[in-house]
């Protein structure tokens, strides 16, 4: 009895910390349960369903898809006419790219002497206004109730709002592969590149859903919506790649250079913002990729069925594909 009393006494002394521990434990369990409930919704996000990196190197694509006819290696055309893109429209207001007024070079008044080098008059240095893209922080994906609805239903709802005629034509991935012949060719092997990229994405989606059904989200519509976004992103990436001119000599033959640039595209296809997630360390290379993104503007409009205020694309740019 004395022992019991002693034990009880000891428990009285430890009662308060134990209570705190139990309360914290309960809170944690409740939070964990809440997260587990909401977690499937967040997993519907295409980012989780897809692999983190999709390689769309024009060379590797030809090798990765044996079921598709062999894709010839991309050939740099002799003239850049094939690279021609539609004339870019003005930037949106939040992208201040304005040419500064340029000072006129001062004329040299001295009479030229055959033995003296006519000294060129240096114009006042023109300071190109640096484009400072406001890095848009990636919004944390919040579980939204409408995400749980099948995408097919959303398409039906939006048809009421947006007339079909004005919607940009963008078919579902399964049909796109079949219809690539109808798309006006923009250059050599572009169709093959996109076709392979789409096939890769479909393969990845299939693999992801097959390996873990819980990650792919409920229903086929979720997968297709995710694939639709990814196909669109790859389409944008291919367009930037086709506009990316990069001199090996300028970069000093450092093949290990690598950076990540992000940009967002509005539903109309207009470039909204550019930012660097990670700079390569080589200013020329960073500038060349930024130019490629700007030259690619305007992009293709958002595909039908994609309801986002803007689409963000992240490109890992590297000169490794050179001199292959």
């Amino acid at each position: 009895m004395q022992e019991n009393t002693y034990l009880m006494q000891g428990m009285d002394n430890e009662f308060r910390p134990m209570t705190i521990t139990m309360v914290i434990s309960m809170v944690c369990h409740v939070l964990l349960a809440a997260i587990l409930i909401y977690a499937p919704i967040s997993r519907q996000q295409p980012d989780f369903a897809m692999p983190s990196v999709i390689h769309v190197s024009m060379v590797t694509l030809a090798e990765t898809e044996p079921e598709i006819e062999a894709v010839p290696e991309p050939v740099i055309p002799d003239d850049l006419e094939s690279l021609a893109v539609s004339a870019p429209e003005d930037f949106p207001e939040d992208e201040p790219v304005k040419p500064e007024p340029v000072p006129e070079p001062e004329p040299v008044k001295d009479t030229p002497d055959p033995d003296v080098i006519p000294e060129p008059v240096k114009p006042e240095p023109v300071k190109p206004e640096p484009v400072k893209p406001e890095p848009e922080k990636p919004e944390p994906v919040k579980p939204r109730p409408e995400k749980t609805e099948p995408v097919a239903k959303k398409i039906v709802d939006n048809k009421k709002v947006v007339p079909r005629k004005k919607r940009p034509r963008f078919k579902k991935p399964a049909k796109i592969i079949a219809d690539t012949k109808l798309v006006k060719p923009r250059g050599p092997s572009r169709e093959e590149i996109i076709k392979n990229a789409i096939a890769n994405i479909r393969k990845d989606v299939k693999a992801a859903s097959g390996n873990n059904d819980g990650l792919a989200g409920p229903g086929l519509a979720g997968k297709e919506a995710s694939a639709l976004l990814n196909v669109y992103q790859v389409n944008l990436a291919v367009r930037v790649e086709r506009n990316w001119a990069f001199s090996t000599q300028m970069a000093g033959d450092d093949k290990d250079l690598e950076g990540i640039i992000g940009f967002s595209v509005m539903p109309s296809g207009q470039l909204k913002n550019i930012w660097f997630e990670k700079k390569s360390g080589n200013s020329y290379m960073d500038e060349s990729i930024r130019k490629a993104v700007v030259k690619s503007n305007p992009f293709q409009a958002h595909p039908r069925g994609l309801f986002k205020p803007h689409v963000e694309v992240y490109l890992r740019y590297t000169p490794k594909g050179l001199n292959k």
């Binding site: 809170v27 996000q45 983190s52």
Partner: peptide
């Protein structure tokens, strides 16, 4: 424990960007 349980999903979300690798198309400056 609370911080870890609460914040972990957000870390995972930010790390889940879809990054596409591209190579230069032209080796010279047009």
């Amino acid at each position: 424990i609370f911080f870890f349980l609460f914040c972990f999903p957000f870390f995972a979300m930010s790390a889940g960007k879809n990054v596409i690798t591209i190579n230069p198309f032209l080796r010279k400056m047009p």
